[in-house]
Nucleic acid binder design. Structure first.
Length: 950
RNA sequence: GCGCGCUUAGCUCAGUGGUAGAGCACUUCCUUCACACGGAAGGGGCCGCAGGUUCGAACCCUGCAGCGCGCACCA
């Protein structure tokens, strides 16, 4: 740092240090180093999508993790920050398929077939995957990259399969025919969590149907979905509704399709709200969850009129068949209209479930899927409720609790190719090979029909040792399922005519294992018990994530942790805010309101981005993003840079011993302020209040250290006393070396550069800051001995504050007198007590006074000399004629009013016996002191007023 | 519909019972030998509204309003 540039230039610094840290394995975690004195600290990264790109949300999230990791390292912990990515089943498959279509390579993925298509996805992953990892490195993330994991890694996939088979064996995973959320765009089932309700503006159609048994009697029905009329199998009314009671049990003629107007029963069901619409509901069991339940209660047939892709099938009738569901809706209304059975259509807004990913309305659809009954729900719910696993901010605990209390089985199968293939082989009832299978194995399996057993039966078809399958019977359809991890079993099952399930598992079914699957867990206790990484680093300390995935991921990880590790996966969860733009909208690609973090890095520097984002991210609140904050971060880095540059320009020994006997009041003051800042920062960290940490750092460094202490020190640096000068350098080194360490978790690059540039690294042992600031000891508040030795008492603050106040008053006087800021003027000072020459020199510098004369005892200001005073001194600016008398008089007048008001307020309180008798002694004393202070102030103002010219 | 959160200076936000704060923005002065990505001085607030508790309320309680977010099968 011999030739320091005037402004900080991040580009030349960042890559250099990141490479250095990696070269020296600074991010690597070694479980062998963990001891009682060197505890482990671990975080697992929320895995971003492997083909994703960095967003501001990632910056916020990962900067917080980096801050936690870096601070823990400096505290002497063995830190593992475990990185990786997930395979994002639907998103990735959709992107690849769309791209191939665009290229004209295929019309549909079937053109390629499963294997060839998956090859293409892997190619895509190799090409685009890992971009986000490189981006994380750019912002300084100190992850142990040697342990990077991907949810589709062979070992990880093995964990997923293992967990599936384990839960299947336990009877928690079952095959069932249910109403699921079907995405007509992605052509797969979704879990409830992947469906978001959105208000949609549409119409409520009122149409009428005739009662078969009473020609001429018509019932009017309200519906938002007339296109599903062909799928109606009943109409329902509330049994208590007098309007329709006599019609229950009779029939109506279904309106559509025209060529097939079937007779539908009128049934009575409590679900119907007589107040809504006409009180008559069309029952469509195939296309509505509630209707499906009504259908079950009344044994209604199910007619499915929709294809998987959302178009109408032949059962919808010739008018609608082939049409998209939305076109069919219009068409159906038109047909009703044409036949005179549409009474009206009124504008109507209702909530419709949308596929979170594809953005299209989902279809409730009856289909066979794999479901999971969540494991370990009790311990998972109670650990948060009782606070042994803590959420920050804790209000999320309530949201979590509510969800856990009403938890529904999880639909885990997806009709996709990209993902973990379900390790189940099925032999259907009535298939070619079934009879042969039954004949051969029924006896050994204790029966091969539904009802024989629904619990999993352990069996080895291949006969190999350790090769086992878990066999269960599907009560719904009589097929036989065999789940296995064994290749030998798989081969044998195929030979027996079993067919592997074509579906893959929900991506979250792999992510929920993240905290231990990434640490090499295999699910065999013999091996897991000897896994040093797991032993040292599980459970992890903190999880940092967004509240939007609390159910998707956080809750499920907790359950998986208890189920497979017997312990919670993390002790604290920090929920970040959501980053929004200035209009409060979420950042999104489609809105184009999401800046590229790397652009910001090249424009302002990584540290600036980190600081800016952290500074504007209060705990528990969404973050309104404004580039100004990043600019502020850059400015701050520049300030830090220049403050260090100033230190370097003073030369002298680095980190000399501080001599207590030479400390000035300013020195003691800044040491006290540092101590105060250290304490505040520690408290803020404990409460995960990161923006408060940045604010304290900012205030201490900029307002206290630079604006006051450094400026005041210049008197000594330009002065003659070399001993004082050297001692001030020692104080500065003490403060700066602490400051750089404090800043390092937020600003890793610039602090490392300055740490070395100022020579602070040179004196330290290699592992304690000598090699890198990353491992320098975390600053501790001063202890009582140090404070005593350095004379850091309360009076130090009082003197400093009086000086600050006097300088402020004096500068204000200059401004009012229209003295340009750069012009030196004569001041006269009359101190009220002792005022050493050194202090006088400081005041002279800060007031830009020349000369600053001590008033002799008999000196009297000329009439008209402007003056200010406080406890420290009276200060005169003898510039008769220059001062704007009227302005000064008016200012002092306003000041006086304010002081009088304050005096009145305090006096009123003190005069109130209720107050004086009830209030604690300390508060009473404070008020009495305040009254004295204001009264003194008033005298000072009156003095200044009296001094003004006529 | 139920639940949660927010409402303080023009903007973004601190402030959990005792003198209303910060940063940015704004006005004025200053390119003074760390920094104009800077320095100095200054203006600006019935703390969403209405009640209550208290000697004392931005803070505690109740109600209301506006905004945001969860959860919920009203067709």
């Amino acid at each position: 740092m011999s030739e320091i540039p005037k402004a900080y230039e991040p580009q030349s610094v960042e890559d250099k240090w990141y490479a250095f840290w990696q070269q020296h394995d600074c991010f690597k975690a070694d479980p062998a180093r963990v001891t009682e004195r060197r505890p482990a600290y671990s975080i697992v990264i929320p895995p971003p999508n492997v083909t994703g790109v960095l967003t501001l949300g990632h910056v916020l999230n990962n900067t917080i993790q980096d801050i936690l990791a870096r601070k823990a390292r400096m505290e002497g912990k063995e830190v593992l920050w475990l990185p990786g990515t997930d395979h994002a089943g639907i998103a990735t498959q959709t992107v690849v398929e769309r791209t191939l279509k665009k290229q004209g390579a295929i019309k549909h993925r079937d053109d390629l077939g499963r294997e060839k298509f998956l090859e293409k996805v892997w190619e895509w992953k190799e090409k685009h995957g890992g971009i986000i990892i490189q981006q994380l490195k750019k912002i300084g993330a100190s992850c142990d990259w040697s342990r990077e994991r991907f949810t589709m890694d062979p070992e990880y996939s093995r964990c997923v399969q293992h967990v599936f088979v384990d839960l299947y064996r336990k009877g928690l995973i079952y095959r069932g025919k249910r109403m699921v959320n079907w995405c007509p765009a992605s052509l797969t089932a979704l879990s409830d969590e992947e469906v978001v309700m959105q208000e949609q503006k549409g119409s409520l159609y009122y149409f009428k149907v005739e009662v078969v048994e009473e020609p001429g009697t018509w019932l009017t029905i309200a519906t938002t979905r007339p296109e599903t009329i062909p799928a109606d199998t009943a109409v329902a009314v509330n049994p208590k509704d007098p309007r329709y009671a006599r019609l229950i049990g009779k029939h109506v003629r279904r309106a559509l399709p025209i060529e097939n107007q079937a007779h539908l029963p009128i049934v009575a069901d409590d679900h119907i709200d007589p107040e809504f619409g006409t009180g008559v509901l069309k029952v469509t069991p195939a296309h509505d969850r509630a209707d499906f339940d009504i259908g079950l209660r009344h044994q209604l047939p199910v007619i499915d009129v929709l294809n998987a892709n959302g178009t109408m099938n032949d059962l919808a009738g010739k008018d609608l068949a082939g049409l998209d569901r939305f076109a069919a809706r219009k068409k159906a209304a038109e047909i009703l209209e044409a036949h005179g059975t549409l009474e009206k259509a009124e504008p109507y807004a209702n909530n419709v479930g949308f596929s979170e990913r594809a953005g299209v309305p989902i279809e409730p659809r009856l289909s066979e899927q794999w479901f999971l009954k969540y494991p370990a729900t009790q311990s998972s719910q109670s650990c948060v409720a009782q606070g042994s696993l803590r959420f920050h901010p804790d209000r999320w605990a309530k949201v979590y609790d509510h969800w856990m209390a009403g938890i529904q089985d999880w639909c885990i199968s997806r009709q996709l190719w990209w993902g973990h293939r379900i390790p189940v082989w099925t032999l259907e009832k009535g298939s070619d090979r079934r009879a042969g299978f039954d004949a051969k194995f029924a006896a050994q399996l204790g029966g091969t029909s539904p009802g024989a057993t629904t619990t999993a039966h352990r069996f080895s078809f291949s006969g190999g040792s350790g090769a086992e399958s878990w066999v269960r019977f599907n009560a719904d359809n009589g097929s036989i399922h065999a789940a296995t991890l064994s290749a030998a079993e798989e081969a044998k099952l195929v030979e027996l005519g079993f067919v592997q399930d074509p579906d893959v598992l929900d991506t979250w079914f792999s992510s929920w294992l993240w905290p231990f699957a990434t640490m090499g867990w295999v699910g065999e206790s013999a091996k897991d018990n000897h896994n040093a990484t797991l032993k040292a680093f599980y459970p992890t300390a903190d999880l940092v994530t967004g509240p939007d995935i609390i159910f998707f991921w956080v809750a499920r990880m907790i359950m998986a942790g208890y189920e497979f590790m017997g312990e919670m996966p993390f002790r604290n969860v920090y929920f970040t805010g959501i980053i929004r733009d200035k209009q409060g909208r979420k950042m999104s690609k489609s809105l184009g309101n999401s800046p590229d973090p790397l652009d910001l890095v090249s424009k302002y520097g990584a540290d600036a981005l980190r600081f800016g984002v952290m500074r504007s991210a209060p705990l528990g609140q969404d973050v309104i993003y404004d580039e100004l904050n990043v600019e502020l971060g850059r400015n701050f880095c520049n300030k830090l840079w220049n403050a260090c540059r100033f230190r370097q320009m003073q030369g002298g020994d680095v980190q000399a011993e501080i001599r207590p006997d030479l400390l000035t009041n300013d020195d003691r003051w800044i040491l006290l302020r540092l101590d105060q800042a250290l304490r505040e920062i520690e408290r803020a960290y404990e409460a995960y209040r990161f923006s408060e940490v940045t604010q304290t750092l900012y205030r201490f460094f900029w307002s206290e250290y630079c604006d006051w202490y450094v400026e005041a020190s210049k008197a000594a640096f330009f002065g003659e006393d070399t001993a004082i000068r050297a001692n001030k350098l020692a104080v500065i080194d003490f403060v700066l070396s602490h400051t750089l360490r404090l800043f390092h978790p937020f600003l890793p690059f610039i602090t490392e550069e300055l740490w070395h540039g100022l020579g602070y690294a040179a004196d330290m042992p290699a592992q304690q800051g000598g090699l890198t600031l990353m491992t320098a000891p975390w600053p501790q508040p001063l202890n009582e001995d140090e404070k005593l030795e350095w004379g850091l008492e309360e009076s130090v603050d009082q003197v400093a504050n009086a000086k600050i106040e006097l300088v402020g008053l004096g500068r204000n006087l200059r401004a009012l007198s229209n003295v340009p800021a750069n012009k030196k003027v004569r001041f006269v000072i009359r101190p009220s007590g002792d005022l050493p020459d050194a202090e006088l020199a400081t005041l002279r510098l800060l007031l830009n006074a020349d000369p600053l004369e001590r008033a002799t005892p008999d000196w009297k200001p000329e009439k008209g000399t402007a003056m200010v005073s406080n406890n420290l001194a009276d200060l005169y600016l003898p510039l008769a004629g220059l001062i704007d008398t009227a302005a000064e008089r008016s200012r002092l007048g306003k000041e006086l009013e304010k002081v009088d008001a304050e005096i009145a307020k305090v006096q009123e309180k003190l005069a109130n016996p209720n107050f004086t008798q009830k209030v604690p002694a300390k508060v009473l004393q404070e008020h009495q002191q305040r009254l004295l202070d204001w009264q003194t102030k008033k005298q000072q103002i009156l003095g200044a007023l009296a001094n003004l010219p006529e």
